[in-house]
Amino acid sequence: MFKNFRLRQLLPKGSLSKVFDDVAVELTMALLQFFNSKPNEEHLFRCMKALSKFVQISAQEVPQLIQMIGPDPRSFKGTSERIDQLIEQIGAKLR
């Protein structure tokens, strides 16, 4: 019970998540590689949702990585309405 409390105390002040920037960057690289495999709608939604969270956590490094490595999330636009909403959230951080 106190393990999580102690872990939160180690996080930087103002940190909203337990995922640090470097972990977000590594997981973003894995997601971008996964996007090249043409995932189905359910997998694509879950990955876009994670990517949206990573963009919020690491607001500078993750968007740069997305632009450098690709594919551009907008290339999946039109797959479904819920994915389009996530793409809009990600796109707002990429600008």
Rank of each mutant, 00 (worst) to 15 (best):
F5I: 12
E42G: 01
L86E: 15
R95Q: 12
K3Y: 15
S52N: 08
P71Q: 04
K93A: 15
V55N: 12
M1I: 12
A50C: 07
L10Q: 14
E42D: 10
S15R: 11
F35N: 00
K18A: 10
Q89N: 05
K18I: 09
L86Q: 05
S75K: 10
C47I: 04
E81S: 10
S15I: 01
D21R: 11
V62K: 01
F34A: 09
C47H: 03
D72K: 02
D22S: 13
K77P: 02
V62D: 03
L86P: 07
K93W: 10
S52C: 14
I66P: 08
N40M: 01
L44A: 06
M68E: 15
M48A: 04
Q9M: 12
M1C: 01
E61T: 06
N40K: 05
S17M: 03
P63Q: 03
F20Q: 14
A50Y: 06
A50I: 08
D22L: 06
F54D: 10
D72H: 11
F54Q: 04
K38V: 04
V55K: 00
K77A: 13
S15V: 01
C47T: 09
L27W: 13
G70N: 02
L16A: 05
M1R: 03
L31S: 10
P39N: 04
E88R: 13
N36I: 06
K53H: 12
P12H: 12
Q64M: 12
R6M: 15
M29A: 13
R95L: 13
S37L: 07
L27V: 13
T28P: 11
G91F: 11
F45N: 01
M48T: 09
R82F: 09
F35H: 04
A92P: 00
V55D: 02
F2Y: 14
I57K: 00
F2E: 14
V25A: 07
E26W: 14
M68N: 06
G91I: 00
M29Y: 14
P73Q: 02
Q64H: 10
F76P: 06
F35E: 02
V23W: 11
R95S: 13
I87T: 02
Q89C: 04
M68T: 02
I66D: 09
A92Q: 09
A30T: 09
F76V: 11
R6N: 15
L11S: 12
E81L: 05
D72P: 00
P39V: 01
S37N: 02
P73H: 05
E41R: 08
P12D: 14
E88Y: 13
S80Y: 00
P63W: 08
F34T: 07
R6W: 15
L65C: 10
Q85P: 04
L31V: 10
M48S: 02
L11V: 00
E26L: 06
F34P: 02
S52M: 03
L94S: 05
K77Q: 15
L86Y: 10
R74H: 07
L86W: 06
A59P: 03
L31I: 15
N36S: 09
E88G: 07
I87Q: 03
I66A: 06
Q85N: 07
Q56M: 08
Q9C: 06
R74E: 12
K38L: 06
L65H: 05
G70A: 07
V55S: 12
Q60F: 13
T79A: 01
A50G: 03
